[in-house]
Design a binder for these strands. Structure first.
Lengths: 337, 337
DNA sequence: AATAATAACGAAAACGGTTTCGTAAATAAA
DNA sequence: TTTATTTACGAAACCGTTTTCGTTATTATT
């Protein structure tokens, strides 16, 4: 049956609109008898309050915005799962936006948020994001915003990250201990927090193990599968080719494996491989893949929980919140032997 | 700078609210000079119309709802990409909801939509969905709804699917031609449209090739990774174990490979495997995986395009729309030899 | 019995826009 | 010149709620 609005419900019951509204909100101003009448009728006539009318009046949208670079990626889809689990519990709705790794897109999306469409924002910034004015503007408008995974260090708000430096360190250490001496590091950005921290860990490990790090081993991979394939092929064809690869994001796994296959490089005999990845198929790859696995679901969940704590209590401050959830290195065949 | 609302903008310019609104909508009632003044001031003071105020008045939310069983799945995340690409172009916003394969969840989500939160809905139903009253109720409320991939046959609205019957047929045929005689079919539901059509294709192929299909080869897999692993293990341990497996969804790939590994069954020598899957890692699995690859992005995009056509023109009917986009079988090592 | 307090409801304002309608001034038609 | 039309704007209604405030009828207090 067609659902009804409050005015029609009021007319039906010969009560005022305000009485209906109050009864439905269990106001003490309304008698128990009237409340029952209203509740029953609301169910019978399938009354569903118009969410935007309530939002307009109440200045709350019960909606959060989630901005991520892409969705076809295990990390982000698991993070969405974590976010959704909390949102559902709290009765919030989730608007999802993809920046497609473009700063311009990201800026436009955040600009939209300034109109009141969302009560709060969870964001993992694009690889192009260097400036953070668009983010600060939003925060200045009073919209709580929390970073997860990919953060802007210069923005003073809560950040949920994983231990990127340590992960980069552990990845390099793992390979150095296996006598790798020319470890390539595949980065996706010169500016991105996660890329840089993972790289710093990689460099620190080299320093601690007194192995010089060759700058030629640090290569940038664009946001294009084919180009990445070419870049990686070129890397592996040079005379002093690497004896190991650390891929800093999941997307690079396939091109690395493909390039090795093409060049008849055996993993792990000729070259060892570690990827930052949440792929469920990591363990059934050929060979099975050593990964740094991030706590994707937990990061999403934690970020969402913190956001809702802020939304529920005005006096919560996000300024100094900085939660780090560790990743784990799972050693498999791609670095064994 | 803090963004401003229309009232403040009007006060600032000493113009009426209606003049501002009309100027911003390029109404012919407003002179060019005034329009310029308003446009400039709107930019200067960073005026962003409150989306819910406009929605309330205009009876349009510029938002669509997308309901899927899960997001951590290549098919659905690619479909979201397709949907988002169109939504972005049309200036629409996308609310995403996960049913987690639960009918109860799905019902609650759709019930919420009846209040006016979204202008239209794209849905891929849960594996539990048998009844479709919740969907018909929503449509009866005037909310356009389009199915993609997983449909309810008895609901009279547009459906974007892939050629499930033919895909099931081709998968079975591919294996039958390789002399497989006991082909297991892993299903995730007795009621789901995609499962049944794929199964029917599988059965038809057996009939056409005059190979009897053993009912014991058709096994149900629940929505739980560990249980699936157990089910598959048991399947492979029975005395007349299958010599091939068709997994009807991506999620079953890992448990199949793991079970084979545990039981020392060589793929493809001892057992051949085909999965319905959009995994980018299919080609680098051990061994590389023969897949039925669905046009996930296109399906999402097509569904979204059709929905927007309906939203833009009232006289479009969704009743008889039935678009089928074919899948492709990509033969790889898991069925070779 | 007169007054104060309380209970239970309705009228109306408010949220921030869009749109209909009315109106004064400027221009066109007679 | 008088009337009709057009131009350019403002007032107010409206979208569907929530909430403040006022009002009556009832109950409690003195």
């Amino acid at each position: 049956m067609k659902s009804v609005n409050i005015k029609e419900l009021a007319r039906e019951l010969k009560l005022s609109i305000s009485t209906i509204s109050k009864a439905l909100h269990d106001s003490h101003e309304i008698s128990a008898k009237t409340k029952k009448i209203v509740l029953d009728a609301a169910a019978k006539f399938n009354y569903i309050p118009h969410p935007y009318a309530s939002s307009l009046r109440g200045k709350k949208s019960k909606t959060i915005g989630v901005v991520i670079p892409e969705v076809a990626d295990s990390f982000f889809s698991l993070a969405i799962n974590g976010i959704e689990s909390v949102a559902k519990e709290k009765g919030y709705h989730v608007l999802i936006y993809l920046s497609h790794e473009s700063f311009e897109n990201e800026k436009n999306i955040l600009q939209q948020f300034r109109g009141g469409r969302v009560d709060g924002v969870l964001i993992s910034v694009s690889r192009e994001t260097i400036k953070s004015d668009h983010i600060n503007d939003l925060i200045a408008d009073g919209i709580p915003l929390i970073f997860f995974d990919r953060v802007c260090d210069d923005v003073d708000t809560a950040k949920i990250t994983t231990d990127d430096f340590e992960s980069g360190y552990r990845a390099a250490e793992h390979l150095l201990k296996k006598q790798c001496r020319r470890i390539a590091f595949l980065s996706i950005s010169y500016s991105l927090s996660i890329s840089n921290k993972r790289l710093e860990g990689y460099l620190q490990a080299h320093q601690d193990y007194k192995i010089p790090a060759d700058k030629k081993m640090i290569v940038y991979c664009p946001d294009d599968a084919k180009k990445n394939y070419t870049v990686i092929k070129k890397l592996l064809q040079q005379k002093n080719r690497p004896d190991a690869i650390i891929a800093s994001v999941e997307k690079l796994t396939a091109p690395v494996y493909k390039a090795c296959e093409l060049l008849k490089l055996n993993i792990p005999k000729d070259i060892k491989v570690i990827c930052f990845s949440n792929l469920v198929t990591a363990s059934i790859l050929n060979p099975s893949l050593t990964t740094i696995t991030q706590p994707a679901f937990d990061m999403g969940k934690t970020a969402a929980k913190l956001l809702f704590r802020k939304l529920e209590k005005k006096n919560v401050s996000l300024k100094k919140e900085n939660i780090v959830i560790p990743s784990t290195l799972i050693a498999r065949s791609s670095t064994t032997g």
